[in-house]
Nucleic acid binder design. Structure first.
Lengths: 340, 340
DNA sequence: AATTGGCACTCGAAGTTGTCGAGTGCCAGA
DNA sequence: TCTGGCACTCGACAACTTCGAGTGCCAATT
């Protein structure tokens, strides 16, 4: 084994021990607990080199070493092998997701499952609708100048929206509009709805066109454009397990989890279901710079509809978390594929 | 001023100082900061009596006194006067809730508003639908043996549910069912839907009755029975302000906030909009025994549709919180009344 | 040249002691 | 019934010590 190889082996040992014990690890402990075949003194030399390269650090002089963000990065990129899931975990995934009736139900179950599996905070973005098709459009008058627009997708998802109209409408106009709207968009992909309804207002009497335009605009605005902006979060209670180095960063983290905006941005850089992203410490936006985030895309087919993942301490079990996130994403994707 | 009166005045002073400073308050500090007109020695006697009655306690010998749950209880019941809201707070309430389009939107805004106003954790139960009426029922076939049931209420609320059918259905049956269902329940209060649809299956061909029954059962089950079970929570990040006596109780609290079950039970004991409930420390279920909960009912009219409230440390500003919760509940009730 | 054992050194954690002062209870006198 | 005085208690804090894990460096060994 060459010099460099052993150094990396030492780094792996440090990461593994630190993740397991949460305590800085020293040269002696390393020599005892791993079969590196060298003495503590040799390890110390390697550690000095690793520290030189910025991969590990000492919280204070004469304490053990702790991996830096950069150290975790190298560990994740080059040293960790995927940890296969235990049969119990596989069973858990199956039984948890089995019998989901709804798209919303799938998301709700998935987020809980991930939180339970990883014992960290799980985040699941609701699937994008760009690839969905319209199954049904419904207009329901609420009052003379208010109307409720409902769109049902082939994934069984329901989008609703109240529209304030510029003028009162009568039943007749609503019925007419409903029929034409339904005819125009039924069976279309969401991305194709825009051009399909473009010419719709022109088909109505001039005095009704403002009303029709308002409805069409709402349809496009709310249903075609921003639908990936919903987020399910679970396992917040697990942050109490993240350790005391988090105490200071707790408030911003909780805020980020509640606000969703930061998280959405993070998840928004969606990946295909086959790749998985790990962001460590400072690689994240400031609010999450004390945490690591493991995400991956999911959805039927090869292109991801949305992203799911886990937020945890930088000191997390990367191989285990990566395995869980990957497995859950694959399984959810299967379910979505079967349902569509 | 009689002896007993002064004792209570001392209790009030202790509560107010402790809430303000978060530190045990001693006899000297009390004499200095309040115009009680007596010497510290006298106050000490009163404090001894208060301690005897279990209204205050010492964290350790020769520290100041801290109110007990019982002390807070007495303070809330008999010593606190409602603190009027500041103009800024009134403005905040108005501007925050102005322009809500949706029932869901009202709830979402309300919960954020409450969290911001009280700087604690806010909880809002979605309004019960028992008093709502049905505006529209829609059936959408998803696949031969699956159908989506949608109910729209006069409050602009949409309830949806996927139904797995015992047998395949054709368009014709769905259309027939849609018409009859709509005719039977349109305009009815939810509580009256049950008897209205009872005889519906009998009107269909024998081979279709199982299908119709399944749909009717789902309608009743999901829409008539459990609809108060949704909950909005905001301001979780504020628990970091609750103080370090919470550190141990943090995990159960976070779990309770996420699980919703405990909270729903707590809120379920609904009150009329005109009364307001304060539960202090151990008066709550175990998970929340380190916290206090201030709740009140809300809804148009005199009977409450649902409950909203705030969860905070036992050491909270009760008059201020009570005022905020009450004001928000009244204002939301107005909005709901105007919209219905 | 790499590895190793030895050794002096550093520094935080934990324990010890002593001081300080806030707060108490009690009592005698106003 | 209130008050001032007084002895007492006990936690907070600071100074000091000890202990030990861990380090860096070096000379000896392979």
């Amino acid at each position: 084994m060459s010099f460099d190889d052993r150094k990396l082996e030492v780094l792996r040992a440090i990461v593994e021990d630190y993740v397991a014990t949460q305590e800085p690890v020293g040269s002696k402990a390393l020599a005892d607990r791993h079969q590196l075949g060298v003495s503590p003194a040799t390890i110390r030399n390697d550690m000095a080199a690793l520290e030189e390269e910025g991969l590990i650090a000492q919280p204070h002089t004469s304490a053990g070493r702790v991996p830096t963000d950069k150290g975790y990065r190298l560990f994740v990129d080059r040293l960790s092998t995927v940890k296969p899931l235990s049969p119990a975990e596989r069973r858990a995934i199956h039984s948890f997701l089995h019998g989901a009736v709804d798209l919303d139900d799938v998301v709700a179950r998935t987020v809980r499952l991930l939180a339970q599996l990883t014992r960290q905070v799980a985040v699941v973005q609701y699937p994008s609708l760009t690839r969905s098709t319209v199954r049904h459009v419904e207009l329901v008058p609420l009052s003379p100048a208010r109307i409720l627009l409902i769109v049902i997708t082939d994934a069984g998802r329901v989008e609703q929206r109240v529209i304030e109209l510029p003028a009162d409408v009568d039943e007749q106009l609503v019925a007419d509009l409903r029929a034409r709207l339904g005819g125009a968009v039924h069976g279309l992909e969401f991305s194709a709805v825009g051009s399909a309804v473009e010419s719709l207002p022109a088909a109505f009497e001039p005095e009704d066109r403002a009303t029709v335009s308002a409805i069409v605009a709402t349809l496009l605005d709310s249903l075609v454009e921003r639908h990936e902006e919903r987020l399910a979060v679970a396992g917040t209670a697990n942050i109490t397990r993240f350790g005391h180095e988090f105490d200071a960063a707790l408030a911003p983290l909780l805020e980020a989890l509640e606000e969703h905006v930061v998280l959405l941005k993070l998840l928004g850089e969606a990946t295909s279901p086959s790749t998985l992203t790990v962001r460590i410490g400072h690689e994240n936006p400031d609010e999450l710079s004390a945490a690591s985030v493991v995400t991956t895309g999911y959805g039927p087919g090869e292109r991801a509809l949305a992203t799911l993942g886990v937020v945890g301490p930088t000191r997390m079990d990367y191989p285990g978390t990566i395995a869980s996130v990957g497995a859950v994403a694959r399984y959810v994707s299967q379910i979505l594929a079967a349902n569509s």
